[in-house]
């Protein structure tokens, strides 16, 4: 008997992915850092470290803390800036046949729009817009926590770019589905969630925060149930594809997010712990489908039973 290989492909608008496994921004460098551990071309896509208009040196150390089943980070968006990114990082990214998603971040609406435009001539698969931490120039309201600003940023980036636009949402809000709806209304091709949850750790010996930045973003297996709940809520609310992120490290985690309504998923902190995990999960997902006689991964998406 011929055993057919299951169909792992998924689509985000017109963008066809070989499989739903992506790597999350800030946990996979520019891909090359993992080339010894993972065949990058087997991944659905890689999302590179967030890039800003001007270079950023990032926050002072200590920048990371290990917590129960998770980690806190306050890296501070260290990156070489768009000019250096385009001349030094982009050429090597073009060697990969998997989709390349560039994550962008700005301090102002204009910066997001400028970045979208600067990426027009590149061969990237999509832009992911990080609206999780930066502050608006005027008023100082965080972009990602105000539905109106989410809409404004999305619309501007949409108008100035010819690529699929993924809006990366912050979980540090009362109603994440409202943010997703605002992104959809602004013309987003997809939403990705969740970014890290704001957290803190204190050294009781010195009575000081363990992070130089005092607070930081919590990630890792500890946040998975929250991420899964938010993905499920957002998938009920919007029609655009949802990309699930948050503590994913096993095939079971991947399947849970797909069932909750995610079209694709991103591996984040797990890459830091097990550099080979992304490719392992592509294999693992294929085996899962084979073992359970599921012909296509699409059958799992939104497959949650009442």
């Amino acid at each position: 008997m011929v055993v057919n290989k299951p169909d792992l492909t998924v689509a985000i608008g017109d963008w066809q992915l070989a499989n739903p496994i992506m790597t999350a921004s800030g946990t996979f460098g520019y891909g090359a850092e993992f080339a010894d551990f993972v065949n990058l071309n087997r991944l659905g896509a890689i999302v590179v470290k967030g890039v800003s208009v001007k270079p950023r040196i990032g926050n002072p150390p200590p920048r990371i803390v290990e917590t129960a089943c998770g980690m806190l980070n306050a890296i501070g968006l260290e990156n070489p800036g768009i000019d250096k990114f385009l001349t030094e990082k982009m050429p090597q990214l073009q060697n990969f046949t998997c989709g390349v998603v560039v994550n962008i971040l700005g301090d102002s609406l204009e910066e997001y729009c400028t970045l979208a435009e600067r990426l027009k001539e590149t061969a990237i698969a999509a832009i992911e817009v990080n609206i999780s931490c930066p502050n608006v120039k005027k008023g100082g309201v965080a972009f990602g926590t105000d539905a109106r600003m989410v809409y404004e940023v999305t619309r501007c980036v949409r108008e100035r770019s010819n690529k699929p636009i993924i809006m990366k949402l912050s979980p540090n809000v009362t109603d994440i589905a409202a943010m997703a709806a605002a992104a959809e209304e602004g013309g987003a091709s997809a939403v990705s969630l969740i970014n890290t949850l704001l957290g803190m750790a204190i050294d009781i010996r010195t009575r000081r925060p363990k992070l130089a930045n005092k607070v930081g973003g919590l990630s890792g297996p500890a946040i998975k149930p929250i991420a899964l709940r938010m993905v499920w809520q957002v998938a009920q609310r919007v029609k655009v594809p949802v990309i699930g992120i948050g503590g994913i490290s096993t095939v079971e985690d991947v399947v849970e997010f797909l069932l909750a309504g995610a079209t694709a998923i991103q591996i984040g902190t797990a890459n830091l712990i097990n550099p080979g995990v992304a490719e392992e999960l592509v294999d693992g997902l294929e085996n899962y489908l084979l073992e359970n006689k599921i012909a296509a991964v699409k059958e799992l998406i939104n497959g949650l039973l009442a």
């Binding site: 150390p61 200590p62 990371i64 290990e66």
Partner: peptide, 15 residues
């Protein structure tokens, strides 16, 4: 330093 990835991806081990 404290270190997470060890391969230059997370940028956590800054000095």
């Amino acid at each position: 330093t404290v270190m997470a990835c060890g391969v230059g991806a997370c940028l956590g081990c800054a000095v």
